[in-house]
Amino acid sequence: ESFERTINIAKGNSSLGMTVSANKDGLGMIVRSIIHGGAISRDGRIAIGDCILSINEESTISVTNAQARAMLRRHSLIGPDIKITYVP
Rank of each mutant, 00 (worst) to 15 (best):
I61M: 14
G37F: 05
I34Q: 03
L16T: 03
I48F: 01
R73C: 10
A22V: 11
N65I: 09
G38F: 04
A22F: 03
C51A: 11
A22K: 13
A39C: 10
V31W: 01
S21L: 08
N65V: 09
R32A: 12
L53S: 06
Y86L: 04
K83S: 09
F3A: 09
T60C: 15
L77D: 14
E57S: 12
N56M: 03
K11T: 13
D43T: 01
E58Q: 09
I84D: 03
S54K: 15
P80E: 14
A39I: 06
A47D: 11
S76F: 06
V20K: 03
A39N: 04
V63S: 07
I30P: 00
M29W: 06
I82V: 14
P80L: 07
D43F: 01
N13G: 11
P80R: 13
G37K: 06
H75M: 15
L27C: 13
G79H: 09
D25Y: 11
G79C: 08
I30F: 06
I9T: 04
N13K: 10
I82W: 07
E4A: 10
G26T: 06
P80M: 10
I48R: 08
I48K: 11
T6Y: 00
N65T: 14
R42K: 15
S41I: 05
L53W: 05
R42Y: 05
I9G: 00
A39S: 06
P80N: 13
S59C: 07
N65K: 10
A68G: 07
I48L: 10
G26A: 05
S59A: 08
A66L: 08
G12Q: 10
I78Y: 13
K24E: 12
G49R: 02
C51M: 12
G17I: 00
I61T: 12
A66W: 08
L27N: 15
T6N: 06
S76N: 10
R69H: 12
D81W: 10
M18Q: 00
A47K: 14
I9F: 04
I46M: 08
T64F: 01
G17M: 02
R74C: 06
S33D: 14
I35Y: 10
S2T: 12
T60R: 01
S62V: 08
S15P: 14
I52V: 06
A10D: 11
T64P: 05
N65F: 04
A22T: 11
N8P: 03
N13Q: 12
I84K: 03
G26P: 03
T60F: 14
A68N: 00
S59H: 05
I7W: 00
Y86D: 03
S33T: 13
S2I: 14
D81F: 10
S33P: 02
I52N: 01
L16Y: 03
I7N: 01
N8A: 10
G37T: 06
I7S: 00
N56V: 00
R74W: 06
P80Y: 07
R69G: 10
V87F: 06
R45W: 02
D25T: 11
G37E: 08
L72F: 06
G17K: 03
T60A: 12
G37I: 03
H36I: 09
N23D: 15
I78D: 14
A68C: 08
E1W: 07
I82F: 08
G38K: 09
I35S: 13
R69Q: 14
E1P: 07
S33V: 01
I9R: 00
H36T: 15
L16I: 11
A47H: 15
I82G: 02
A10W: 12
T19N: 09
I9W: 02
I55N: 04
G28D: 00
N65L: 06
K11L: 13
V63W: 10
I48G: 02
G26F: 00
G12F: 07
T6P: 03
M29V: 15
D50P: 00
I84H: 00
S21A: 13
R73D: 15
M29P: 03
G49P: 02
G12C: 03
Y86V: 03
N8Q: 13
R69T: 14
E58R: 05
N56C: 01
S54D: 06
I35N: 11
D25P: 08
D81I: 10
K83Q: 09
R45T: 04
C51P: 02
R42L: 11
G26K: 06
S62T: 11
A68L: 06
N23G: 12
G49Y: 01
T19S: 10
R73H: 12
L53H: 10
A68R: 02
G28H: 03
I84N: 00
D25E: 13
G38C: 07
V63H: 06
T85N: 05
T85F: 04
S15N: 14
S33H: 11
R32T: 14
G17W: 03
G12I: 07
G37R: 05
P80Q: 12
